[in-house]
Design a protein around this nucleic acid. Structure first.
Lengths: 414, 414
DNA sequence: AGGCTTACTTCAAGCCGTGATTTAACGTGT
DNA sequence: ACACGTTAAATCACGGCTTGAAGTAAGCCT
């Protein structure tokens, strides 16, 4: 049923450029020789395509490797400073804007706390735009070299019509009380840069897949535990989006029909058993904003000290979590499950053995044996990195086409 | 991250052939003109490609449509008798082998009940091979025109190395006590035809997607209720397989951690609340083999008659089913949910309103609004049709390449 | 019969990847 | 020093693809 559209011979070149660029980007400096071996392209094509990429300044030579007796191989790598990316994290307590080079090295960042005004949309948009201007000004980076702005938001994102250049993006979020907020249009009014918006948990998941515990996996689920619970599903190496990009909303799946009441209004949601807010609240702590982290840490400390109420609470959480992960394994058949998010990383070391055991008890044997469960390797700050991968991903997909932003053939500035 | 392999200029033609063939197959007779409009290819390419397809006998002209004032459009369609397909359903009570033409019209079928010997593997293989020989003999179809044999089995299928031509296929099934059965190798010993094996629920799901309630959807979940519970997930128009083809095992996801015991040995599985076996058993009926259908019908009749125990049982099932479907909606974000399988079709008319309401109560609002829940339109016999779509799908993907089986250019026999 | 409209075919032009050949850049042995 | 072998990269003829323009076929209307 999959119908891919019309293809012309030029699409072949685009595909080849994309393949080689991706390979160079992720597998570090490579010689043309190795590129040929890995990609399957003939030496002639490699020569042609790398020639183009070099002429466009997207790739540069970087040293060489002697080969016993013959001409040494010249190593190629993606030119880090050839283009730039902006990642934005609209978090629960702050808005963070970061500017990266192509290698995702952070060149500058701007943090603005979200204090009293809360998540008033206009205020958030204003913070994003001023942050963007700030990092550009501080680094002196030419805006024409910025491939795009990726934004991670706490909510469900409707992508709208891609032809609208992101202006059709609409965000729904029950937690910060955004209902059909036209974030794309609001940001478009303040910048001409290409826009990409996705759920923050999803961008963090993408970061784990590219640079963290998910590296190398083609099928994986990144489970994210913070105040709430989310997930980012990767299938065949790409984000699983579903019909309207909202796939992977794991936190409100039912692990106990008719069970505990959840903040979403329903009952028996996973989040009501393992979300940080729910755990802290059940243990009697304060559950708002920054107090939550302290509360969860206190719960953990109490459990380590052997307090039976705390131990029971965490044991139960591990049980439910294992069951919910088992569901993910049964349904998605991933090769890896990565547990991330600030709460996941905090509780992970203690809970992981019990979670693994519960998962094994609840999941079907065959797919369970194909799956490993690991902790994330990136901190919660990686949301901005993940957001920046949104435009980067499109850049690599297109084979380094910089639609009108950077003239082809112009060498990198500086 | 998605790296598609090397592409040469010939792959373009393969892609074009595939696109046009698919279009002609699913959207009935079409003129070259409409083909061009739909596919985006230029008139010249359409002419070339359809010329090839006509020469190969895969496509034929069938009438014409007058166009006010100009040259009439000639309609093209896939030649139904150009090739054949075999679908096999290894069910719980019988083995059914059916021979189809390209239009999936059944030309002959052979049923063999699985009585006392049960699911002894060698016996099943023998029944499949004799059934295959039988339908070929009865119809006089040349085995060289058979594109392949698709088999639907009750269990998890490991596809093995595609290079082995299906010989590496291994089946695991707890219900019929198959543990790593090398079905591919066993069948390969008895036939040279290309082999395709998949879970029976998945093949039925594929049939619903192609010809039933799923038509036209790109993202859907076909939920199947029989003795147990299964699902077939379609994403971007293709089966969602996961890392080792076992994705979509929905029946043993947990809807009530620590709840009812399930026949799989775990607790709180969906199947323990809505599977036919569980329902009949809880209502006090016999739960083995063919008595199950009678038992479920009796339960339904009792509920219709107002017996409170039966009504309560079905109400509870609808509640759990709605919750589990809500999980599917949250996780996969489909545009359609199709409920099929013999038990699903039997209970569906009564349960559907309650299920829809429960789903709305349990799912997140946004993805729920994007999804419709419908009953399947194909009976349980469609497993064989679905099985036959396995080789058919490959045939269409390859653009009608009939690897060595039918000489290109040879016109259809008869 | 001539003109008009629409469907389809043919053909030159521009690209692309391949594979063979050529050129470049390095060790080594005499 | 210098020829020689070896390996890496560039060049180029070739077959194949899609496109788009020009040409042909097949029906209407007057």
């Amino acid at each position: 049923m999959t119908l891919r559209g019309k293809q012309t011979v030029r699409d072949l070149r685009r595909g080849s450029r994309s393949t080689l660029l991706r390979r160079l980007y992720f597998d570090g400096p490579l010689s043309r020789q190795e590129l040929g071996r890995i990609s399957g392209l003939s030496a002639g094509s490699i020569s042609n395509v790398t020639g183009e990429l070099l002429a466009d300044g997207l790739v540069e030579e970087c040293g060489s490797v002697e080969s016993d007796g013959g001409r040494p191989r010249i190593l190629l790598q993606v030119t880090p400073g050839r283009a730039h990316l902006v990642g934005v994290d609209v978090g629960e307590t702050q808005v963070r804007v970061a500017l990266f080079d192509l290698a995702l090295t952070e060149l500058a960042a701007s943090d603005h706390p979200l204090s009293d005004k809360g998540h008033d949309v206009d205020h958030v948009v204003e913070l994003i735009l001023t942050g963007l201007a700030e990092v550009l000004r501080r680094t002196g980076v030419d805006p024409d070299t910025v491939l795009g702005v990726g934004v991670g938001v706490p909510g469900i994102v409707e992508q709208g019509d891609p032809a609208e250049q992101g202006a059709g993006i609409v965000v729904h979020s029950q937690t910060v009380d955004w209902d059909a907020v036209p974030l794309g249009r609001l940001l478009r009014a303040g910048t001409d840069l290409p826009l990409h918006v996705d759920n923050g948990a999803k961008t963090l998941g993408q970061a784990e897949m590219w640079f963290g515990a998910g590296r190398g996996a083609q099928h994986a689920v990144v489970a994210l535990f913070g105040s709430g619970v989310g997930a980012c599903v990767i299938a065949d190496g790409a984000r699983f989006r579903g019909a309207t990009s909202s796939a992977g909303e794991w936190g409100h799946t039912k692990v106990h029909v008719g069970g505990r009441r959840c903040r979403c209004g329903s009952r028996g949601c996973l989040e009501a058993y393992v979300g940080a807010e729910a755990l802290v609240e059940r243990w009697g702590g304060a559950a708002d904003g920054s107090a939550e982290k302290a509360g969860l840490a206190a719960l953990l400390a109490a459990a380590e000290a052997g307090e039976s109420a705390a131990v029971e609470l965490l044991d139960e959480a591990a049980e439910y979590l294992g069951a919910a992960i088992a569901d993910l394994i049964n349904l998605f058949n991933p090769e890896r499950i990565v547990i991330g998010g600030w709460a996941g990383l905090l509780l992970g070391p203690r809970l992981l053995p019990a979670v693994r055991a519960a998962t094994t008890a609840y999941a079907l044997r065959f797919p369970r044996e194909q799956t490993s469960i690991e902790l994330g390797r990136l901190g919660p700050d990686a949301v901005t990195v993940g957001a920046a991968t949104l435009p980067l991903s499109q850049f690599l997909d297109s084979g380094g086409e910089i639609a009108g932003r950077i003239g082809p053939g112009v060498p990198a500035a500086g």
